[in-house]
Amino acid sequence: MTDAAIGEMRGGGMLRRAAKGRTLPVLAVLLAIVAIWYAGAVGLNAQWVRDQAARSETVLSTGEFVVRTLSLDRPVLPAPHQVAAGLWDGIAGQKITSKRSLVWHGWVTLSATLAGFAIGTAAGILLAVGIVHNRAMDQSVMPWAVASQTVPILAIAPMVIVVLASAGITGLLPKAVIAAWLSFFPVLVGMVKGLRTPDAMQLDLMKSWSASPSQIFWRLRLPSSMPYLFASLKVGVAAALVGTIVGELPAGASSGLGARLLSGSYYGQTVQIWSALFAAAALAAGLVIAIGAVEKIALRRMGLAR
């Protein structure tokens, strides 16, 4: 058997493995998206290229036309390779301390997100504990919590920034407050449900041992609520990131992925906008994956993993 034949067999094996797993479907979808994106870029940027050609009275072949639509400086829709280049330049092409570095902007956003997520998670858990243990809170807190989420965050964010700035608080904290505003809610809802999962029999058992409410909480309610906590943390951390970015939009913030989005739109730097968008998406995915990993370890150790 020749080396080529063996190579072919190996390749075939890999293909088969890919087809069996999730790799192939994921790749197929990805390719389709990229193809649609390229087609969209050509279509949306066509008018500009056509106008320019008419102005300079040049006649473009189809090939030249397509190449030009995909290599504009300020395209309506940048092509995937332009965004990829923008991302690469933002991440690896700049010093990390540079104002043009996506790593630096990402870190500014990430730190505010994590701070806001921590505040929101703590608030959500504390409110849930109150709701489960106190009848007055059970009746009164939830409507307000729901109401807080129905107010458009875009309307609230500038007010929070302005009010806190007038009190001398700027920088990370105002953004963290907005992130917390969005992330406490899923944690609250999940934890109320989670702390109430122990059934009547479990609670009767505790009662038969004359357990105190705090013993019931630490030994039964809190451990039982863990699967719900992790599910809502994943929603909460993504919401916190959205909140932070929204908090970076108003009032001339100069750092963070939100500021990057905004300055990109001021100057028509669509590649910059899209690069910042993808950086934000990657950040969100990373955060959710990190929580998922902690969840897996924690629930397996607690014997709660499915």
């Binding site: 029999m201 479990q202 041992w209 004359s210 607690m302 014997g303």
Partner: peptide
């Protein structure tokens, strides 16, 4: 009770010592 009601996150020993901890 009809169901054992053991905590999945505790070992059998841990479950049995639960009321003892509470008391």
């Amino acid at each position: 009770f009809q169901a054992p009601g053991l905590y999945p996150w505790r070992t059998i020993s841990g479950n049995i010592s639960l009321p003892l901890e509470i008391m």
